[in-house]
Amino acid sequence: MTAKMKKIRKSREDRIFDGIIYTIAVLLTLIALYPMYFIVIASISDPKAVAAGEVILFPSGLNLKGYENLFQYKQLWTGYLNTIIYAVLGTIICLAVNIPAAYALSRKELFGRKLFVIFYLIPMFFTGGLIPTYMNIQNFDLYDSIWVMVLPFSVVTYYIIVARTFFSSSIPDELWEAAQIDGAGTMRYFITIVLPLSKAILAVIALWSAVSQWNSYFNAMIYLRDDLLKPLQLVLRGILINNQTASAMLTGTAATEAKEMAELIKYSVIVISSAPIMCMYPFVQKYFNQGVMVGSLKG
């Protein structure tokens, strides 16, 4: 009965409006998904067919040579491993330095709180810039070492602000008073009570940190020289932007064939390098969305 009423109430105008909305939405979904779909089908097709424009909706002439070539390309796997090391280590350090600071700033009795807030905020507005920072890293002898990827830039004011907002809005003051009566000090209270209650914000910041380690190449490009230390994104840059595959993997093949193979390798390497994050995404989406929300709160 109510369903029927609703149907009647839907006016002609509303139906047209709905029609437009859904048409646009379907189009946008296609635009969003097709490029990624194309990469996947191109990576398993015959490179000749891809170059000729025969691969549009379906793969043609199943061909896994791109992946085969990549499995033998050691540099890629070293890069992969390095990125995982940097992401794990960087995230641990990031949490270890930012979260306690955020918690301390959320406590009203912190003496000199305003000054500390200013101390953390200044770098959001003013930094030394590229060259002074670069010279400083060299002075500390961190150039070309693992540590430059995980330590010097681990303090992020934005993370501190977000976590502080979380602490001051979700951990009630009464809890601290109760803990004090039970004889707990700040440290013990922070570790045994606050942290377990803050899993949501820990997850959000860990994800942000891990994703930024996974994605960025700039610091690696300017601070790392050793091939054995290079993260995945730098290896990808070599293959995708600087066309380094051709010489490294394809010696001895004919010129045109080598060029086609190089393109196939590019499609394959995009799949290999992006699949983990994309597959992880549905499981962690909740935390990402939460993060956007928390982040939009004023610090």
Binding site: P123, N136, L151, V155, I160
Partner: peptide
């Protein structure tokens, strides 16, 4: 609790200033 972040900030962000 703030010490680690302060040290890192001073060494790697404030010194370059």
């Amino acid at each position: 609790l703030m010490l680690p972040s302060i040290v890192i900030f001073v060494l790697f962000t404030y010194i370059p200033m």
